[in-house]
């Protein structure tokens, strides 16, 4: 469980993080999005008890970052933006060094290192020097280091950056599995489709402040309005608008397609499908149009910028 209240950090006159409230329960993933320099890394550093907050507090797995920083660090696994690997060390040696720092006994270290190397496909390079690794391999090794002490809280900064699609898929699957193991996870990423896939909650941070927060569906509704759907048909409409449920607002149509908005897609989409199928009109596809996280993100950022401009 990660909980923050009014978490703030200033460096001299510069406000890096300003009054951040977050809550990530066990088994949930929060994606922290924001432009470069928005305060993501400073927030992560405060949650790792590396930096002391100027104001507010945060609890990590029940431990206060201000009063029990050592305990917090023992319960957090951090994947930093820069991997911070020691090039002259060998893979196993490196993980063993960190295992020792986390006070794991030799047998546990050996067992977990072998399992993690297997999980991330690094077993074959167990004795290789890290300086010989590709960027993706380094990222996987850094992730293995993060998971070595089995922390209940994970803070992952750009977990799939510099990875090939196959490796990125591997890591995303690992994150899904970690969530199912009841861990609280915060991901900082610029990859919005990844955030959409992985996150239960989204928080958008800009100039140190959270400007939008919620689950992806709520955020979409808040920022983009009622979602729009497009249905592709196997047969022409012949210029006739179908008789759709009352709450469905048709926004456009062509010979074999139709767009509509509904605030209750879980109720209305099956009804729309049922209408066409029962009228012997085959449905090729039904999908949401344009309502992806990227639009949400851009809308959030521009809304705040416009407000600031007006002010």
């Amino acid at each position: 469980m990660i909980e923050t209240f009014d978490l703030s950090k200033t460096f001299g006159d510069f406000v890096a993080v300003d009054g951040v409230h977050l809550q990530v329960r066990a088994g949930k993933v929060l994606a922290l999005l924001g432009p470069n320099g928005a305060g993501k890394t400073t927030t992560i550093r405060m949650l790792t008890a590396i930096l002391r907050p100027t104001r507010g507090w945060a609890k990590i797995a029940g431990e206060d970052i201000r009063t029990a920083p050592d305990l917090v660090r023992a319960k957090v696994g951090v994947l930093t933006e820069q991997h911070g690997l020691y090039g002259r060390m060998r893979t196993t040696e490196y993980l063993d060094f960190y295992g020792e720092l986390y006070n794991l006994d030799a047998a546990t270290r050996q067992r977990r290192i072998a399992a993690l190397l297997e999980r991330f496909g690094l077993s074959e390079v167990a004795d290789r020097r890290i300086s010989e690794f590709s960027k993706g391999m380094r990222q996987k090794l850094a992730l293995a280091r993060t998971l070595l002490h089995r922390p209940p809280v994970l803070l992952l900064d750009e977990p799939t950056s510099a990875m090939d699609p196959q490796s990125a898929r591997l890591v995303r699957d690992a994150i899904h599995q970690l969530r199912s193991e009841e861990r609280s996870i915060i991901i900082c990423t610029h990859n919005l489709s990844e955030a959409e896939e992985l996150a239960d909650q989204i928080a958008i941070i800009r100039r140190g402040r959270i400007i939008a927060q919620g689950n992806p569906k709520t955020l979409k509704q808040q920022l983009l309005g009622i979602p729009e759907y497009e249905i592709q048909l196997g047969k022409g409409l012949n210029g006739h608008l179908p008789n759709l449920p009352n709450d469905v607002e048709v926004t456009g149509y062509g010979e074999i397609w139709l767009r509509y908005r509904t605030a209750h897609p879980e109720r209305d989409n099956p009804a729309v499908l049922w209408y066409f199928l029962s009228n012997d009109m085959p449905v090729i596809s039904l999908k949401e149009t344009g309502g992806d996280l990227e639009q949400v993100y851009l809308r959030a950022i521009t809304t705040v910028e416009e407000a600031a401009h007006v002010a």
């Binding site: 590396i50 660090r73 930093t80 820069q82 911070g84 960190y98 720092l101």
Partner: peptide
């Protein structure tokens, strides 16, 4: 080299 940050993230 930024290798100090993972070190600072440990209970050291």
């Amino acid at each position: 080299r930024r290798s100090i940050e993972p070190l600072l993230s440990t209970p050291l």
